[in-house]
Design a binder for these strands. Structure first.
Lengths: 197, 197
DNA sequence: GTCTATAAATCGATAGAC
DNA sequence: GTCTATCGATTTATAGAC
């Protein structure tokens, strides 16, 4: 029963954050009340406030975790060394891997709109991340490695859209998870629906 | 005729809906209060309730408009006649055209989560729409027109992600608007970042 | 660390005057 | 068609006992 569970001190910041992120994803951040969160965690609102300063502190912690994973990717050797095209390939594959590892946190990050200070901070971080991708696309075009038929900035945006849409597709335990980063990279570089022949 | 008297009645359902959709997009549906809406429209909450039954009625009207545009596209000759590949091309281009014409409404549709009845209805409609695309992708593969390197269902999802990400890019008045449907279609079928050569 | 109780503000929505 | 005034429910957050 929930009584035995609630009696135990199983409620640390990490597990409560996990519960909160799950609720934020299902209902949306704004539509989720602290009452919803505490009910999902099996404690009262007051107890939840003992672990986190408030609703936005929960959001901030979740967004930080998600962004840390993405920016760590940009520091990997494969993302800093080599030709622009090779670096792009590494980052696209890495984005999918991060998304698979931290699915709920990345999902939440992608749904942020900008009502609170934490949300605006996360949006700015995302813009910084996307700008680095856009720069790489431009460099790959200038180096003659790829030939985009559209503005490099639009190509970068479409690439983001394609990569990020995987959060709606991937579910842990799904077969073929190990091949997903390569599959998505192939779709991005060779076409989602390439002509046969 | 639309007289000066009619022009003075700036607060009809259509113009209020436009204001509301704008607010819903900036702040998110759940985070937008009727107070926010009436302030943005320049009338009181009570006056707003004179035109719409409530907040969800506004959302419903906006989602209906957006979905009507998308489903009308599926009825066009180019979407019903020809090979699966040709029909796919027509629909992808058409989605971008609808998105350009009804940008705020489509943007709102893509952000719906499922908290209210109208939202769940819209999500179901979107699933129906996406399922038709997925069927076409499968048929194009079986007909030997395209060779997707991944599951057709994943290819359809990536295609959706690419197409829908254009709402974050396109802004009315942007140069090259007329070419956008073709540009996005080319990116989808030939690759966003195809190798040079 | 968890609880009950409640403050203070805001929410969607309505009544009724003009 | 717009307004003022307000209801009842819900929200974030806090106080203080155990």
């Amino acid at each position: 029963m929930t009584t035995a569970r609630a009696r135990r001190a199983v409620h640390d910041r990490s597990s409560l954050l996990e519960v909160a992120v799950g609720e934020f994803i299902t209902r949306g951040y704004d539509a989720t009340s602290m009452e919803d969160l505490s009910r999902a965690a099996g404690i009262t609102k007051s107890s939840f406030y003992h672990h986190f300063a408030g609703k936005e502190a929960l959001l901030r912690a979740a967004l930080e975790r998600s962004l840390a994973g993405l920016f760590a990717l940009l520091e990997e050797p494969g993302a800093t060394d080599g030709t622009p095209l090779a670096r792009l390939r590494h980052i696209v594959r890495g984005q999918i891997a991060v998304l698979q590892r931290d699915l709920p946190y990345v999902t939440l990050l992608l749904r942020v709109r900008g009502n609170t200070e934490s949300e605006r901070w996360a949006l700015e971080q995302r813009r910084t991340f996307d700008a680095q991708i856009a720069t790489l696309v431009r460099e790959a075009v200038e180096a003659g490695e790829i030939r985009v038929g559209v503005e490099p900035a639009l190509a970068a945006r479409l690439l983001s859209g394609l990569v990020n849409s995987v959060v709606e597709w991937y579910r842990p335990g799904r077969p073929g998870a190990a091949q997903l980063p390569d599959d998505v990279a192939r779709a991005a570089f060779e076409g989602i629906l390439p002509a046969a022949g």
